[in-house]
């Protein structure tokens, strides 16, 4: 029993839950996301203006050969800002997803395995979950500082309980599996049991959950910027570009729409990939 059965997933229940060939939409989504990541990583290659370089004399200009999408209220190149904005927005998305999983996973494992710890931990998680995430995030950001790290922590905190709950429920059901009971009887160390036997059960749903967290984190960053509790203007993010442009929405809609387009494309892609991952990895979760 040293080798647990694959991922502990049951066989697909229905014909149409079989692994589908990646449809066009998913392939497109992957392509868009790759392009955005490429844009973020190699931002300097795609732009010829620094995103912070300001020229108040040239503010709010329309698109031109020099400024492809025009300039913002400080006379900064909107195109460069959107390209560099991808860096921060994607960092926020990926960072929040990775860290909330990294923190939520061990907590969930512990809660699912140790019944005494469970009661305490889950009350705390219930409490955290009961506080509306956006309120918590606004409070954290405006009460400390508006840096990248703070914003990420603020967005991450409300996500952790969700991860913990997910992992815990998986552990609870896996505990009853014969191979786990056998491992316990054979005196496998707790750590090994958690890491080798119980954790693998949780990975598939976590990957799916992670993509959704990633998408929602990018969106939440934008909302925080809109509410004035986002990352400062010197670091362009899609969220703060949109937030700063919204004053001009009726006069110069491009200031909102281009970044909005990038943001929405990115989130749609991540969501589509998340759906595909769920269909492929975990038919039991086939929802939405």
């Amino acid at each position: 029993m040293s080798k647990p059965v694959s991922l502990g997933l049951p066989a697909p229940r229905r014909r149409w839950a079989k692994l589908p060939r990646p449809p066009l939409a998913v392939a497109l989504a992957a392509l868009v996301l790759l392009a955005l990541i490429g844009m973020a990583v190699f931002a300097p290659w795609f732009t010829h203006h620094a995103p912070q370089a300001l020229a108040p004399a040239l503010r709010l200009k329309g698109p031109s050969a020099e400024f492809w999408l025009g300039t913002d209220a400080y006379g900064r190149d909107l195109y460069s800002r959107i390209v560099y904005g991808a860096r921060v927005s994607l960092t926020v998305g990926l960072g929040v997803a990775v860290f909330s999983v990294a923190i939520g996973l061990p907590l969930g494992l512990l809660a699912g395995y140790f019944r005494t710890l469970d009661a305490l931990l889950m009350r705390v998680m219930d409490g955290l979950m009961a506080v509306p995430g956006i309120l918590l995030a606004i409070a954290i950001v405006s009460l400390s500082s508006a840096g990248l790290a703070t914003v990420m922590v603020a967005i991450m905190l409300p996500e952790i309980p969700q991860v913990v709950r997910l992992v815990r429920s998986r552990v609870l059901s896996a505990r009853e599996e014969p191979y786990v009971e056998a491992a316990v009887l054979m005196g496998t160390s707790t750590f090994k049991l958690l890491a080798r036997h119980l954790m693998p059960n949780t990975l598939a749903p976590l990957i799916v959950q992670g993509t959704y967290i990633c998408a929602s984190a990018i969106l939440t960053e934008a909302i925080l910027s809109f509410l004035g509790a986002g990352i400062g203007t010197e670091t362009p993010t899609w969220g703060n570009i949109i937030a700063e442009g919204r004053l001009y929405f009726q006069l110069k809609p491009g200031l909102v729409l281009w970044a909005g387009l990038a943001l929405s494309l990115c989130i749609v892609s991540i969501n589509l990939l998340g759906d595909a991952a769920r269909d492929a990895l975990d038919p039991r979760m086939k929802k939405r």
Partner: peptide
Amino acid sequence: DLQPMDWQT
């Protein structure tokens, strides 16, 4: 070191 914050902070 430009530190953004709300007015009350």
